[in-house]
Write a protein that binds this DNA or RNA. Sequence first.
DNA 1: CTGATAACATTCAGAAGTGAATGTTTCTAG
DNA 2: CTAGAAACATTCACTTCTGAATGTTATCAG
Lengths: 221, 221
Amino acid sequence: MTDGRDRDRRVRRLGVRHPPLQARSEETRDRLLEAALACFLEEGVAASSTARIAERAGVTRGAYLHHFGSREDLIAAAIGHLMAGTMGSIEATIRRLFTEPPAPELLLHVWRDAYPDAYFAGYEMMLLCRHAPRLRRAWKQQSDALARRRRRVLLELFPEPLVDGRVNPFLEGFADFFRGIKLMEVVRTEAETRAVIAAMSPVLLEELRALQSLRGATVDA
Amino acid sequence: MTDGRDRDRRVRRLGVRHPPLQARSEETRDRLLEAALACFLEEGVAASSTARIAERAGVTRGAYLHHFGSREDLIAAAIGHLMAGTMGSIEATIRRLFTEPPAPELLLHVWRDAYPDAYFAGYEMMLLCRHAPRLRRAWKQQSDALARRRRRVLLELFPEPLVDGRVNPFLEGFADFFRGIKLMEVVRTEAETRAVIAAMSPVLLEELRALQSLRGATVDA
DNA sequence: CTGATAACATTCAGAAGTGAATGTTTCTAG
DNA sequence: CTAGAAACATTCACTTCTGAATGTTATCAG
């Protein structure tokens, strides 16, 4: 009951960090999350028991249980861990989309760099959200943080009035297209995937060009 | 061991169908598959035990076990059942795409009619395919059948040389976009979804118009 | 240096799920 | 009308997973 309050008080008393112990703890936590994501990716979420994850992390099941009260806790944390890990890549991709010339290769690179296999674990967890309110809340919280960061990048590249009106929604749709592509990789060959991207290239690149031409421009009202 | 051969011989001897018994059997099978898909959709594949599915189907666990030797068998069959059930909708959607005027509402209708919630079960099963070769084979077999049917519709609407070269790949990408949209519905409001569709409408509709203008035309070589 | 506490480890009991094994009923061919 | 097979039902044994309970070790404030 009062654990949370006690801990807060202690943390306040000691300052924000107490490195040695805390550091070890956070490393264990990180190892567990990394192992969880790797396990989800390679064996599937359903097949990833907490025991298997702890084993892969090289910690005991007890350590896992110390950090995460339940399997759901772990998954919720894994969602955050995955998103945090891909923030950099997403930021880089956005900059690239609106600075590099929109050639067909650009889309191939986006597909390869910005949509790594790790996303399969994300899709599985996203679908879990459908039936787990707590996971859905965790997802929303994390994706909101990601959206804020994305918006900051876009505000650098575009004048404010344009961002929410045209660039943001297009980027969402653009991302959705690649999410669909990524999902279908499960049952497609790489050649088929490339063919689909190639088929959609003209329209996407055209819109990209149109948006690029608006960079730095301002729109009144 | 010889069950398969014996059965084949018997079927050949008696003709392709022996209705009354066979009918009851197939009805049970269908109920199981329907229940499985409903369960997958409403509770998630992971949470859908064979017992729960049998219960929902209103049959005993024994009946289930008689029809499907393993849980994987059931899922493989469910993949086929889901695809078979959506064939008609897909065919109708394709006809609609290339006959109706490409207005923004068209895309909203496509989203609503051609991508029902039932697809969430499909996405979960698709992701299972990543770690289950048998499921992947089942998926490929079914989706090939679906592709053949789709091609037949397209050949009606377009002269042959165009189908594989331009129309088919575009349709794939078009579908991928909506798959991504559908997937993200898990963590989006309907308003957000509509905004994304609206943002992508111009480019998609333009391409659709371009393809429509090729209907009935022929290309030599 | 010492008590308190966080971090980690081990054991345990209960729940659930799967498929094999073994009945029982219903139907149909001959 | 009867043998036999298919459809359906029940029971059972086995494994696996999870989280609670409880024990041990390492760190730090005073």
